[in-house]
Amino acid sequence: MLLHLSAAMLMAFLTIAAGFQRAAQIEHRLRSLRDFQAALKLLETEVGYVARPLPQALAHIAASIGGRVGSFLQEVARQVDEGQSAEQAWIGQLNEMAETLALQREERALLQQFGVGLGIADRSRQLDRIAYTATHLSQIEQDARPQGEKNIRMWHALGLLGGALVFLVMV
């Protein structure tokens, strides 16, 4: 009986965790979309006014933004500082951290496109690309946020209800 109860509790816990995990993924995606926009806004200032070299600029932005996007930028800055091209470092790290950043195909393609030629365009073209990418990310976020927030609540609820149901059925 005790073993049966323990198994039911474990299954219920796993079901709840699965629901919360799906909700967290959606939260991470929305957070990444917002943080990438904030990072691009700061990069616009770094490129347009401060003219700070990219490795220092990215490291500076990473410290301000923090979180997963901050870690991504920090790693790109480190690789560029070690002599890798910004394009290689940006795209390579984006592929590496795509799951961690919870990026979906649309924003991943947009950010990959942003990485092509990063750092070798002159100031006005670099600023144009930053503005273009930020506008599209904002659009993606606006489209994703209402449904995403509903889905977060739904997965939380589904997780809890599913867990309770599993427990009741097994007991």
């Binding site: 003219a51 990219l54 560029v80 002599g83 910004a86 990063l118």
Partner: peptide, 19 residues
């Protein structure tokens, strides 16, 4: 472009005066 990228540490925009 690779030489420029390496020389400017991927920051050509920061070297407009030099350009």
């Amino acid at each position: 472009e690779m030489v420029l990228d390496r020389a400017s540490r991927s920051s050509l925009y920061a070297y407009e005066e030099e350009l």
